[in-house]
Amino acid sequence: MNADLIQYLLRLGDSAMVQAQRLCQWCGRAPALEEELALMNVGLDLVGQARNWLEYAAELADDGRDADHLAFRRDERAYRNLLLVEQPNGDYAVTILKQFFYDAWHFAVLQGLVRSSDARIQGIAAKALKEVTYHLRRSGEWVERLGDGTEESRQRMIAALPLVWRYTVELVDADAVEQRLFQAGVIGNLQQIALDWQAQVEATFERATLPVPQAASHFYLSGRQGVHSEHLGLLLAEMQSLPRAYPDATW
């Protein structure tokens, strides 16, 4: 049970961390000054959440590693984030679609977690849910703006969709770890999460006048199992460079 829970906490924490890291890469390069603030706000929320999840995971694992160690010393094969969030930022259409698909999933997941049988999870999720409600509202509005904006923005969204969509299979396809945690009352109903995600995507895409693709099908990679795309290694190489170069250092 503890092993499952630790796995699941790493998934939540790693996804938030990697998504935030991608947002950091927009720093100073966002399409408007107002977006600089907004992207950094979302990133700040996510690093804060990652810290909460990883701290809990570290306590349960109790093997001498703390949250920083988990974030900055694990190899890519030990990272458990969704494939979706490790994908490169691309243009703003790709960035917004990644953010939106992640937010819609995150929102549904947290709605289950606020009713978790685990009080610690309940507490972290309650705070995170407020933040993610806002993230979803923002990214959903941007999907609408870009989908139903100019001809160019629409074409960019249509071009971005296939780059991102295939990775959404992980958002709606629960594995055995998650099934067991659901049965134990720790996390929400997985079918419900999938349905909520799908409904959110359909409603937003309709407003954005974008076509919803056929459900993505399973393929070889699985972020949750630590089998990532090639992008994660480079992302971690940058993020972890200082703690790796100076393993005994305090910062």
């Binding site: 000054l33 107002e34 603030l37 907004a38 706000n41 923002r138 509005e141």
Partner: peptide
């Protein structure tokens, strides 16, 4: 600055 009022509220919030 914002494209519309809804965005103005969000930008003001940030």
């Amino acid at each position: 600055h914002a494209a519309d009022a809804a965005m103005a509220i969000e930008n003001a919030r940030e």
